[in-house]
Design a protein around this nucleic acid. Structure first.
Length: 311
DNA sequence: GGAGAAATAT
DNA sequence: TATATTTCTC
């Protein structure tokens, strides 16, 4: 009886989770996104070059680069794009002759969306089999590097550890830092296996994209979020000890954090010290880019998961 | 060479 | 101060 309930819970969270999933369809190759028109001009990068990052075939009838190889063959050609000459200079490298090489890649922001992808991959691999390289490949996020994943994985493991500790010890006070971390990690349900044992990879081979049905739901959700664009966000969540607590499940009441930012990508063009890669499609932007239900169902085009939803 | 952990930088 | 990146070690 209880097991059944639990199972139901599982399905529930999983279903909800899926709904929340951005699905590759909504994502675009960050490679391309990284290069803004201005930058392209500045660096004399032609449209072909930009397209090289592989654009959404649905929008751009140019089938340049296959989205697959991005994970294996090309570690991160797009991200490495040296649009940061100015940034590097600002960094004080001291060398203006070697822009691309010495350039530090922009800070990657692990947004809930991206993190979901991450968790999804880890979940399907199984926490024990989840290694940076594999995860990275599974995520198929253009521009994502193994280092990125490794770093995040490290933090994620810490988080899982915490969760386990909390559940076992009965739940202790979490520091502000932990709370903040939880926000992100809580944005995606932690596969039961992680907290329980971690038998092995799931029987499912990890789906690249989510069904259209889920997409529609997400649109609704997005719309709802837009309406309540207030800054009321997971406030209570932080005080709640989710995971194996009273509910025994996940109480991820919130789907996304309120992102008041209209722009999703912030490049370090002329502004030194402010170079971040926004990998998360804010609700507003998401909806904009996602407002094509008919198209979706009709064509079924899917985009490659990317860090930059813009364009 | 890759993974994991720690240190450092922003 | 928190998070991501980089570096070091196994």
């Amino acid at each position: 009886m209880r097991e059944e309930e639990e199972e139901e819970e599982e399905n529930n969270w999983f279903a909800r989770w899926e709904e929340q999933l951005p699905s590759p369809e909504e994502l675009m190759p960050l490679s391309q996104t990284l290069i803004t028109p201005e930058l392209a001009l500045a660096f004399d990068i032609t449209a072909a070059g930009a397209a090289n990052g592989n654009l959404n075939p649905a929008l751009f009838p140019q089938p340049p680069a296959p989205p697959q190889p991005a994970a294996c063959s090309h570690p991160a050609p797009p991200l490495s794009s040296d649009f940061e000459s100015s940034a590097s200079a600002a960094a004080g490298s001291g060398g203006g002759d070697e822009p691309a090489r010495t350039l530090k890649r922009p800070r990657l922001v692990w947004t809930p969306q991206l993190h979901k992808r991450f968790v999804d991959a880890v979940a399907h691999l199984g926490i024990k089999n989840a290694v940076p390289k594999t995860i990275m490949q599974l995520m198929s996020v253009d521009g994502l590097t193994r280092e990125n994943v490794a770093s995040h994985l490290q933090k994620y493991r810490l988080y899982l550890k915490r969760m386990q500790g909390l559940s076992t010890s009965g739940g202790g006070p979490i520091s502000a830092a932990d709370a903040a971390t939880d926000q992100l990690f809580a944005s995606a349900p932690v596969p039961h296996q992680f907290l329980t044992r971690g038998p092995a990879a799931g029987p499912e081979p990890f789906l690249p994209y989510v069904p259209t049905a889920a997409l529609q739901h997400q649109q609704q959700i997005t719309a709802a979020m837009q309406q309540q664009q207030h800054q009321q966000q997971y406030y209570h969540q932080r005080h709640l000890g989710h995971f194996g607590s009273s509910t025994g499940g996940f109480d991820h009441g919130f789907l996304n954090r309120g992102m008041p930012q209209p722009a999703m990508h912030q490049m370090v063009g002329p502004a030194p010290g402010a170079g971040f890669l926004q990998l998360t499609p804010p609700p507003a932007a998401l909806s904009v880019d996602d407002l094509e239900p008919a198209r979706r169902e009709d064509g079924g085009e899917r985009k490659v998961l990317t860090l930059f939803p813009d364009r």
